[in-house]
Design a protein around this nucleic acid. Structure first.
Lengths: 193, 193
DNA sequence: TTGATTTTGTACTGAGCAATCCAAAACTCT
DNA sequence: AGAGTTTTGGATTGCTCAGTACAAAATCAA
């Protein structure tokens, strides 16, 4: 029938993800994407509609991956507070790395860069937020049933609070805050549950 | 001596600030800056070294303004917890606005956009963080002396925590979180003090 | 082997980018 | 008024951007 593709589409999305993650949407050029994926422009534009489309795909893939880890922690056997401590601990670990590796979280970065001026991306971000929120809320409610978390508190409010803490730690890390301070934020957050 | 300037430098910085605030550093072109300030390219480049330099000036101006309000609240007569509630309340108010006005906070936006790849800007952000941190820590310590805030807690850790909460609310707002949820985060944060 | 079909590499498009150049205009001082 | 100095507007620089055009290469079915 026809000439087959020489590359794997998913691998290309992964490579593009790395590029977008490192520099953000605007600051990543199509040439950067060619370099990162090892593909020619034609292959990229033949496979994806546009840079924007490729970004959307990469973002979705990042969310899939990240939420996999997120859910794995929430579905583990730990007490609820320990689960949340573990989730926040990941942030401390990731932000501890040296400057050039400090890419933060693509979702947080994208919230700030595109959340308020790219409706399509905003929709993706909103759906992802809701997904994380529901998973977290369920884990907190389970913790309340176990007596691990105060039943008088509103599980939804706590879930929003924890997600905000994650975003806040990400922002503070970019402002130059070190590991110790991040751990302090982690402790204070967990103590608030 | 010479031809005098027809415009006010500070006003130009203010106008540039609006543009950068609305779209971020990368997404604001020099043409956008000309339109926003009403100046020609020559005037801009004659007054400021570069787009980057103008951005730095605009960012510093934003910080000056913002920290003025910040300090005003912290130096008011309220109990410490009320001061912090007021600081967080400003975020809820600002993020409540309609989509096109939802610019968030230029400092938070810049932390994410440039914090990890622009050393000069990173330095400015770090100094600004420290300034806010010290002011907040002092207010919390005063609150501890007044008995308004638990003396057993580490004032520094609480200060980092509050700053992270602000950043986190900003990120969540961009992810589409509404006013009610933001108010829940506010309450949970203040209760944690 | 041939013909249909798709991918791939390369050159290219027009637009927009940050920044510079230059001469005319505008002003102050003598 | 005239010399000296700075600002200003507009044209222009060289470059990069996202995206396209096109023909050669690669594969399949017959």
């Amino acid at each position: 029938m026809a000439r087959p593709r020489k590359f794997d589409e998913e691998r290309a999305v992964d490579a593009a993800l790395e590029a977008f993650w490192a520099a953000g949407y605007e600051a990543t050029s199509t040439q950067d994407l060619c370099d990162a994926t090892g593909l020619g422009r034609s292959s990229i534009y033949n496979t994806f509609k546009s840079k924007h489309d490729l970004f959307r795909r990469a973002l979705l893939r990042y969310m899939e991956r990240k939420n996999g880890n997120f859910d794995a922690v929430l579905e583990s056997a730990m007490p609820a507070k320990e689960k949340i401590r573990a989730l926040l601990g990941v942030i401390v670990e990731e932000e501890r790395l040296h400057a050039e590796d400090r890419r933060g979280c693509l979702v947080v970065n994208t919230c700030i860069e595109l959340g308020s001026r790219d409706p399509e991306v905003a929709g993706v971000l909103e759906r992802d937020y809701r997904r994380r929120f529901e998973a977290l809320k369920a884990a907190i409610e389970a913790g309340q049933r176990d007596g691990d978390i105060d039943r008088a508190k509103d599980a939804g409010a706590l879930a929003h609070f924890v997600i905000a803490a994650i975003g806040g730690m990400r922002v503070s890390a970019r402002a130059g805050v070190g590991r110790q301070a991040l751990e302090g934020i982690l402790r204070t957050t967990v103590d608030a549950l």
